[in-house]
């Protein structure tokens, strides 16, 4: 497995999607994935196992503005 995140991104995207690295900016965006992983690491443990489905649309209704 690749050691650098940008190499890992390239391996995955080529293998899984058949999309080649397009340009140097793509390399920069791939490097940025390290920051995304770090952000998700900080959030670990916050997502709880839910026994019932939790719908975003239902939350919109529950929290909506009520007529005066």
């Amino acid at each position: 497995m690749a050691n650098k995140i940008e190499d890992l991104v390239e391996e995955q995207v080529v293998r899984w999607h058949g999309v080649e690295p397009p340009n140097a900016a793509g390399h920069d965006y791939a490097k940025g994935m390290a920051g995304l992983i770090a952000s998700f690491e900080k959030l670990r443990g916050e997502l709880q196992f839910e026994d019932e489905p939790s719908s975003f649309e239902a939350a919109l209704q529950e929290t909506k503005e009520r007529a005066p």
Binding site: P22, A25, L43, A59
Partner: peptide, 30 residues
Amino acid sequence: IALGARFYAGLSIPAAYYVEALSRRGPILR
């Protein structure tokens, strides 16, 4: 260049991250 690069890297984001993002949307709004 900019959009091709953005889409390219976006294809590497794991499905588990995406599902986590969607799953917490309702609870966070509540």
